[in-house]
Amino acid sequence: MPISPSRPALRPRPGFTLVELILAMTILAFVGVMFVSALTYSATSWIAAAESVELAQKGRLALTRLFVELQELRGMDPALRAGNDADNLFFLDTDGQPLALRRVGSTIVLGGRVLLDGVATGGSMLTYHRADGSAWNPTSGALRDLYEIRIRVALASQYLNAERAFTTTVNPLFTGAARAPRLQ
């Protein structure tokens, strides 16, 4: 019988097998995908919160300014009164000077200056009421019958594709309307 050269016995070599490497890379890829997803969600939430805060600040500031101006309303501008409606109000300020509050597209303009931009279009910005809750006509109603002006401003969120609405009610001080609480 011929003698064959002896082969050295197979010993495990140090290192990783192909299966172990593929398994480790799969686990690492899964962890990476989870990390990127969490990071994306966190960034989206932060941007949404920042935009919400900005909208709230803009809305509150605009409503506060409108509240102050309309509370001091002294009369209607007779030359422009026919243009008063749910989006426009031409009135006289505390000095008797004409002042215009207008919604032009997605912008609210007060006295020729931009007060607020990014306003959602549609819906009434201003509604006018008598003391009994019935509607008051801003084009022909007697100023002494104007009890309150309700202001509603909806700001469009650019990032979230939604609206955030802000409302307030103003009781003009100098219209001559009775100032008593209304029972409902």
Rank of each mutant, 00 (worst) to 15 (best):
M1A: 10
A9I: 09
A9R: 10
A9W: 07
P12I: 05
G15K: 12
V19M: 15
M25C: 11
A29Y: 05
G32H: 10
M34G: 09
F35Q: 12
V36A: 15
Y41P: 13
A43G: 14
I47F: 12
A48G: 13
A49Y: 10
A49C: 10
E54P: 07
L55A: 08
G59R: 00
L63Q: 00
L66R: 00
F67Y: 08
F67A: 07
V68P: 03
E69C: 03
L70R: 02
L70Q: 02
Q71P: 04
Q71Y: 13
L73I: 01
G75K: 08
M76H: 09
L80K: 11
L80Q: 14
A82G: 10
D87H: 14
F90C: 06
F91V: 03
L92D: 03
G96N: 06
G96M: 07
G96H: 05
L99T: 09
A100M: 09
L101Y: 08
V104Q: 11
G105R: 07
S106E: 14
S106C: 04
T107Q: 15
L110M: 05
V114F: 10
L116G: 02
D117N: 06
G122L: 05
G123E: 11
Y128N: 01
Y128G: 01
A131F: 08
D132Y: 14
D132P: 02
D132A: 10
S134I: 02
S140P: 11
Y147Q: 11
R152S: 09
Y159W: 07
L160H: 03
A162K: 15
A162N: 15
A165E: 12
F166G: 01
T167Y: 04
P172C: 00
R179Y: 10
A180L: 15
